[in-house]
Simulated assay, not measured.
Amino acid sequence: MIATPLTNDLLHGVAELEPTPRGITPHRLPAWVRQQFPDPQLLAMQAQPSGARLIFSTTASRIELATHPVRITYRGADRARGRIDIFIDGVLHTRDELTGGDRNEIDLQTGTSSAHPGPAHRTVVAGLPPGNKQVEMWLPHNETVELIDLLTDEPVVPEHSPRPVWVHHGSSISHGSNALAPTEIWPVVAARTAGGVELRNLGLGGSALVDPFLARVIRDTPADAISIKLGINVVNLDSMRLRSFVPAIHGFVDTIREGHPDTPLVLVSPIFCGIHENTPGPGAVDPATLGTDHVQFIATGSLGDTAHGRLTLEVIRGALRSVVEHRSEDSNLHFLDGLELYGPVDADTLPLPDGLHPDAEAHDLIGRRFAERVFAPGAAFGGVPDRH
């Protein structure tokens, strides 16, 4: 078997690769961000390679990828394991559920954590047909993985995509929470539905907080289309009031425009979430549901308490729409109401299982609707797939 070095030429959708004793760890945020603000939640989420994949061509009949997963679990709440999706010439060939790896278990009642080490995992794809083929190996969206080695029975050639790049930033929903596989998270569904688009996913669970460093990352990242979906985490953490939120959004957009003055940019408001529509945060886990199969999130603020600038999703949608209206000189800045992606009627038919995150079917719905509304001819990104 031939061992191919795991380098940036092979890996798409990440900022950089960090050498480790076992191999390499992909990071979706650059080292300067991780050093400047080493927040444990942010560090954990950016290390989960949501949207990242290895892409290469080969005549190999057998491919093996060794990884060492690291996952976060919560005592009393089962979470699905990560998966690696392998596409051959654009068609799903294998969906491999991870086993082993290290597990960091958190007790939500006490805040304590415990470490449980485990063995590496090996993904094997065998019996591939002869001839040259394109291989995409999508890494798990919900577990960190160290990449240990890539083995094949014939050489591999990295593929450099000429496709235009779509950069997306959002919360755990954009990260893929509650989706079952890396190609079933809604940004990947949208990118694949649109066709001809290279996704760079900056969905970061619990960490879409209008952070200036994220705006600088987007500013400095090559992009032909940009979308930012902000609001739910600001309410979850009760981290801002309306007076600070609106200028922060303007500043976020201003920073992005320093590097992308004319790039199509869509500001997306939150999807429907009943617990926070009219009730401010902070959000919390309902303690009565711990230890059950149906852990639920709740809002701990007071219903309708917006008089002093406290934020709800309804308030945020109006604020984001107003930001775009007040920047009318920017013809490439667009607003998309998140209720068009998932609204109250959808919540009746496809309810959020935990009160906060969409399930696999809703991820697919959101992704297809985003592609229809944003990538369609004449829409904000309508001409992007043809730019290159």
Score class of each variant (00 low, 15 high):
19 P>W: 15
28 R>T: 03
28 R>C: 06
31 A>V: 13
33 V>Y: 10
62 R>D: 10
64 E>V: 05
66 A>G: 03
68 H>T: 02
69 P>H: 02
69 P>T: 02
74 Y>E: 14
75 R>I: 07
76 G>D: 14
77 A>K: 09
78 D>Y: 10
80 A>D: 05
80 A>W: 04
83 R>H: 15
91 V>D: 13
92 L>E: 15
94 T>W: 04
95 R>V: 15
97 E>M: 09
104 N>G: 02
105 E>R: 14
111 G>F: 13
111 G>S: 12
113 S>P: 03
117 P>A: 14
118 G>T: 11
120 A>H: 04
131 G>H: 05
149 D>W: 13
156 V>G: 04
160 H>K: 11
160 H>Q: 12
162 P>W: 00
164 P>E: 00
167 V>D: 05
167 V>P: 09
170 G>E: 13
173 I>A: 11
175 H>E: 08
179 A>K: 05
183 T>P: 10
184 E>Q: 12
188 V>R: 03
189 V>W: 04
190 A>H: 07
193 T>C: 06
194 A>E: 01
196 G>S: 01
205 G>R: 02
211 D>K: 13
213 F>Q: 00
215 A>E: 10
222 P>K: 14
224 D>F: 07
225 A>D: 00
230 L>E: 12
231 G>E: 06
241 R>T: 07
244 S>L: 05
258 E>T: 10
258 E>F: 00
260 H>P: 00
264 P>F: 15
273 C>Y: 01
274 G>D: 13
275 I>M: 10
277 E>K: 00
282 P>R: 07
284 A>F: 01
285 V>S: 04
291 G>W: 08
292 T>Q: 02
299 A>L: 05
300 T>P: 02
301 G>Y: 01
304 G>F: 15
307 A>R: 07
334 H>A: 07
340 E>V: 01
352 L>V: 01
367 G>N: 03
373 R>I: 04
374 V>W: 02
376 A>R: 06
379 A>N: 05
